[in-house]
């Protein structure tokens, strides 16, 4: 069930990126899109009956910590992408006077 919700989020994000003309909204879509994959990684790291991976004497099953670490890297990448996109949007606003992709006239 969680995976279905997760994939719904994935599709919503993809839809926004493709559908919207406003660049800021596109960036928001991109963030939703990326976050859905981050949540996917967190979902697969959960082990049934597992506890947080801190070694203790009375526990033998732990959740997998590796996906969390991977996603930490991916989040950094995502932040870099977002900030670069926002910086470009500021430049676009300066240059063309609009952030609606459809209104930008290159002619």
């Amino acid at each position: 069930m969680l995976y279905v919700l997760n994939m719904t989020l994935f599709l919503i994000g993809l839809f926004i990126i493709i559908r919207e003309s406003n660049l800021i909204k596109k960036v928001i879509g991109l963030n939703i899109f990326q976050s859905s994959v981050f949540i996917f990684y967190i979902l697969i790291s959960k082990v049934e009956g597992g506890v947080p991976p801190i070694i203790s004497a009375d526990q033998s099953i732990y959740s997998n910590p590796l996906p969390h670490v991977l996603i930490l890297t991916a989040i950094v990448v995502s932040i870099a992408t977002t900030s670069l996109a926002l910086a470009l949007i500021i430049k676009i606003k300066d240059k063309y006077g609009t952030i609606e992709e459809d209104d930008i006239d290159l002619g």
Partner: peptide, 29 residues
């Protein structure tokens, strides 16, 4: 004139591609 627009459009499509690859890696993992 079109450089910024080309860059941001490539950014969106490139990121979509990268996220697809990321999700695929997750499934394989």
């Amino acid at each position: 004139k079109g450089s910024l627009l080309a860059a941001i459009q490539y950014l969106f499509i490139g990121s979509i591609g990268a996220v697809f690859i990321l999700l695929a890696i997750g499934i394989l993992y």
